[in-house]
C-alpha cells in the first residue's frame, strides 16, 4: 500500500470538513464538520505511525479522540444555550461581533 493513498484520503476529508465548517448554518452540523477534520488528522497520524514504525502516532490519535469528545460536549452545550436564548441555532443570526 502506498502511504499517499491514506494521506490523500485525509486531505479530502479535511477539505470537506472545512467546507462544512464554512458553509453550514446549523450549529450541530458545524460541529459534525469539525469531527470530519479531526478524523482526517487521525488518519494521517496513523498512516505516518505505520510508515515510521513509531508508536507515538497511535498514542496521539487516541489523545485526539479524547479531545474530540471534550470538544463535542462543550460545543453542544454552547449550541444548547444559544438555542435556549434565541429559539434557533442558525449561526447567521449570531452576529454580536458585527462592527
Amino acid at each position: 500500500m502506498l502511504l499517499n493513498q491514506f494521506l490523500l484520503l485525509g486531505a479530502v476529508l479535511f477539505s470537506v470538513g472545512v467546507y462544512g465548517v464554512i458553509a453550514r448554518r446549523n450549529g450541530v452540523a458545524v460541529l459534525m464538520s469539525i469531527e470530519l477534520i479531526l478524523n482526517a488528522v487521525n488518519i494521517n497520524l496513523i498512516a505516518f505511525s505505520a510508515m515510521d514504525g513509531a508508536i507515538a502516532g497511535q498514542v496521539f490519535a487516541l489523545f485526539v479522540i479524547a479531545i474530540a469528545a471534550a470538544e463535542v460536549g462543550v460545543g453542544l452545550a454552547i449550541v444548547l444555550v444559544i438555542y435556549r436564548n434565541r429559539r434557533s441555532i442558525d449561526l447567521d443570526e449570531v452576529d454580536l461581533m458585527r462592527g
Binding site: 465548517v21 464554512i22 458553509a23 449561526l91 447567521d92 449570531v94 452576529d95 461581533m97 458585527r98 462592527g99
Partner: peptide
C-alpha cells in the same frame, strides 16, 4: 468586511 459572522471569519482564516 466585518459582518460579525464567525463563519465568514473562518472562511477568511482558511
Amino acid at each position: 468586511q466585518q459582518t460579525g459572522k464567525v463563519q465568514a471569519y473562518g472562511a477568511y482564516l482558511f
